[in-house]
């Protein structure tokens, strides 16, 4: 992979501002492991190797099991995820692939069945911010240390 620009060192103000959105999601009341599931699944869809590496390590550290992380790309057929998680993963996929069909009423209402409106807003912002990090990392060939 050829080396590309580092947006964050060229434009520190951009990083600071995006970091502000990230900090907001961190201050939300969402269960931490749910946030990691969102981040990993969106990163899988967007093909962000850097993000997958970072967030799977983060998830493991927070107590997620390797087995569930392995299953994540096939979550629809897996018995390892709760109904709440499945609702959020479906929303994650539809928001990430927003150009395909938008977000269906069934999916939107599916999340509202388990979470209140504030939590839904927080979940949505989590999906939006990981999509931002994914786009930056993929388009700039952001890399990580493979030997770690």
């Amino acid at each position: 992979m050829t080396k590309r620009i580092n947006v964050y060192s060229l434009e520190p103000a951009a990083y600071k501002a995006l970091r502000g959105v990230e900090d907001y999601t961190r201050s939300s009341q969402l269960p931490v492991l749910l946030r990691e599931l969102i981040k990993i699944r969106a990163s899988q869809i967007n093909g962000c190797a850097y993000c997958i590496d970072m967030h799977t390590q983060e998830a493991i550290k927070l107590g997620e099991t390797p087995r569930r992380i392995f299953a994540l790309s096939a979550w629809k057929e897996s018995p390892l995820f709760s109904d709440e998680e499945r609702a959020v993963l479906q929303l994650t996929e539809e928001v990430t692939f927003i150009s395909s069909h938008g977000v269906s009423d069934a999916t939107y209402n599916g999340v509202l069945k388990f979470y209140n409106e504030n939590e839904l807003a927080q979940i949505l912002m989590q999906i939006v911010v990981i999509n931002s990090w994914n786009r930056i990392a993929v388009s700039t060939n952001q890399i990580f240390e493979p030997q770690k």
Binding site: A14, G20, V21, Y24, S28, E117, N118, A121, Q122
Partner: peptide
């Protein structure tokens, strides 16, 4: 619903 999220987005 989430004023802080908007504030952060508007900064960006």
């Amino acid at each position: 619903l989430e004023r802080n999220s908007y504030k952060a987005m508007l900064t960006l």
